[in-house]
């Protein structure tokens, strides 16, 4: 068995000026081919206006076990949301 093509993660910018979003992955020998393949695999129905490809091994990620310490602290900081504050109607639109 010969060497398998590396795995690439594919990010696509949709029509409406949104950020690139992860849509899936695929195998390709290099970045150029990854983009060509991504076009065939992930934009057959006009889903995108731009493609990013990143070789999967270059992505660093948080570990599932870190979920609590990393993300729970923000749960107690409800004052970060505008709805935390009661502004009297008389003050007008804010």
């Amino acid at each position: 068995m010969s060497q398998e093509w590396p795995l690439w993660e594919i990010f696509i910018r949709g029509q409406h000026g949104l950020s690139h979003r992860h849509v899936g992955s695929l195998h390709a020998p290099d970045a150029e081919m990854a983009i060509k393949n991504a076009r065939d695999v992930y934009t057959r129905r006009n889903e995108g206006v731009s493609i990013w490809v990143v070789e999967a091994k270059h992505i660093s990620a948080t570990a599932p076990g870190e979920k609590g310490p990393l993300f729970e602290p923000s749960e107690s900081k409800v004052y970060r949301h505008p709805s935390f504050f009661d502004i009297p109607e008389e003050a007008g639109h804010m």
């Binding site: 010969s2 060497q3 093509w5 020998p29 290099d30 081919m33």
Partner: peptide
Amino acid sequence: AWVREGLMAHAEKKA
């Protein structure tokens, strides 16, 4: 097989 191997060899050469 020769296509898969050939494209990989080409990618390595380019890199």
